[in-house]
Structure formats: C-alpha cells, structure tokens
C-alpha cells in the first residue's frame, strides 16, 4: 500500500500536467458548448441547444460527409503508398538516401506554401499541370467549380504533405524486421509477393495501426488545405468540419456553437479511433498477433 502510494505520488506531476494542459481546456470547451456567448456577452446557459442546432444544420452534415470521404481517401491511400515505399526502400534500391530525402521533403514545406504551389500548378490558364492535361487532350481539373474535383485536389495535396509522416513510421518499422525470416522464406521458395503478404504485412501491422490512428486523428482536423485552397467554396460545397467550426468561432463569434462542433469532432474521432485502439490493444498488449 505504501509503495503503491509512492508510485502514485511519483506519477502525480504528469497527471497534473495532463489535467492542466488537456483536461481543463476540454472541460472549459464542454462548459462553453452548453452556453450562448460571444464577445461582450455574458454566457447564457442553453443546455443542449447548441448541439441541437449543429446536428440539424445541413451545412454540418455536408461538412461531415466531405470530411469523412476525404479523410478515408487520404489515410488509406497514404498508408498504402507508405507501406509500398517502405518495402521498396528496405529492399535495397539504389540512391536510397537521396530518394528518402526527396520523399520526406514535403514535410518541411509549410501548408500555406504548399497550397500556393499546388494552386499555381493547377491554375487553368498558366498552371503547368493544366498545360500537361491539355496537351494530353484531357479536360482541366475543375477544382474551383466542382465539389468532388475540389475534394480530390484537397486529398492529393494532403497526401503529398503528410506521406512523409506515415512513411517514416513504417520505414523504421520495416528495417527493424529480422532478415533471417525473409532468408528462410526465400529458401523455402516463397515469392516476393508471398514474403510481403505473409511476413511484412503481419509484422508491420502494429506500426500500421499506430500510423493509421495518428493520421486519422490529424486528418480529421483537416483545415489549411481547404481554407486556403477553396475557402469552403464554391457555395460552401467543399466545407469540412474544421472550416465549419472556424467559421462559427472566428467569423460569427458563436463560441458556444463552435465548442459544440469541437466536442462532436472529438466524439466522432474517438468513435472511429476506438476500433483501431481495440485492435492495437489486442495486438500490442495481449500479444494476440
């Protein structure tokens, strides 16, 4: 009992720190979400009215669908590419260091600059990508007028920006896998695909789950790519949850509504992440691989 108390005491500073920097703001936002307030207004308790407003707002549901679709495309395409590239790079390809530098370079580019670059590349009249599409007889990507073309561009941009994160996690996990397993499998006549299917994927799964969960959480907060590229337009067709929240918080100063949106985003993220958390728990803590 005495030893247990000392353990708790030693862990207390971290608990206090977590409570202070994560718990308190979250509780304050929860409190705000139950009030109607703006600058110069005394908060007025409104119960669950803010949640009711948000859940009955068609713009919220459009933003939710956009976010859900883009996040799933971004996360799975990105992870697929990261697994393939990690496998390719670990197999000992030439100029590996140079190529790794190129792959992780977008991580050093700020989101604002990335949006400006991509916006220019896909500019209808003078953009180089538009010119290539035109020279191939293909139509321009109508990302300023078509909802799904815009969301495709947002997804491409997001994958380009964040691929290095998934790649670094999976590449470091892949080069840590024991070589003798691959040598034994090769001796037994396993093809390259079999080795990938039966050795690489199962052994990489814990790292894949970690990358998946982190990317889900980060991607759900997708903001700069949409806000800077389309501003949520045309006609609010490309709005995502984070831009919807931003609009209510900082343009309309509806802090109660914005807080409710924030909490709904947290709950949605938790719901999606819970499946992966459960799988991670099973695989990593109980050794049920």
């Amino acid at each position: 009992m005495g030893r247990r108390f000392i353990y708790l005491l030693m862990a207390a500073p971290v608990q206090v720190l977590l409570l202070a920097v994560i718990g308190m703001p979250a509780i304050y936002v929860l409190w705000l979400s139950l009030h109607k307030t703006a600058f110069g207004q005394v908060p007025e308790f409104v119960g669950l009215a803010n949640y009711g407003f948000v859940l009955s707002d068609p713009y919220f549901w459009r933003a939710f669908v956009n976010t859900f679709v883009v996040v799933n495309i971004v996360v799975y395409v990105e992870l697929g590419l990261a697994v393939l590239m990690a496998t390719l790079f670990a197999s000992g390809m030439p100029f590996r260091r140079l190529l790794i530098s190129i792959v992780i370079a977008p991580y050093a580019v700020s989101e604002v600059i990335a949006v400006v670059i991509w916006k220019y590349m896909l500019e209808p009249d003078v953009g180089p990508v538009s010119a290539i599409l035109a020279s191939l007889g293909l139509p321009e990507l109508a990302w300023t007028t078509d909802r799904w073309a815009a969301m495709t561009m947002v997804a491409l941009l997001s994958i380009w920006l964040h691929l290095p994160f998934s790649f670094l996690i999976l590449y470091s996990a892949r080069i840590g896998l024991p070589k003798d397993l691959y040598e034994s499998a090769a001796t037994d006549g396993a093809s390259a695909f079999d080795r990938f299917r039966y050795i690489t994927v199962p052994l990489l799964m814990p790292a894949i789950l970690v990358a998946l969960m982190f990317r889900y959480v980060f991607a759900f907060r997708l903001f700069a790519e949409v806000w800077l590229l389309t501003g949520g337009g045309p006609a609010r067709q490309t709005e995502v949850l984070a831009t919807y929240l931003y609009r209510h918080a900082f343009r309309y100063q509806e802090f109660g509504v914005a807080s409710a949106i924030g909490w709904l985003m947290v709950l949605a993220t938790l719901l999606i992440a819970s499946g992966y958390l459960r799988a991670m728990y099973k695989r990593m803590l109980t050794g049920d691989a």
């Binding site: 500019e123 209808p124 009249d125 321009e140 109508a142 990302w143 300023t144 337009g233 045309p234 006609a235």
Partner: peptide, 16 residues
C-alpha cells in the same frame, strides 16, 4: 457576373 462567366469574360476559376 453570371453572363460574364458564361461568356468567358471572367476566368473559370473565378470563385477561388
């Protein structure tokens, strides 16, 4: 503005 857009007097990416 609608007519200008239809006629190509405004660029196709006008909304952005």
């Amino acid at each position: 503005l609608h007519d200008f857009y239809e006629e190509g007097i405004l660029p196709s990416n006008w909304a952005a």
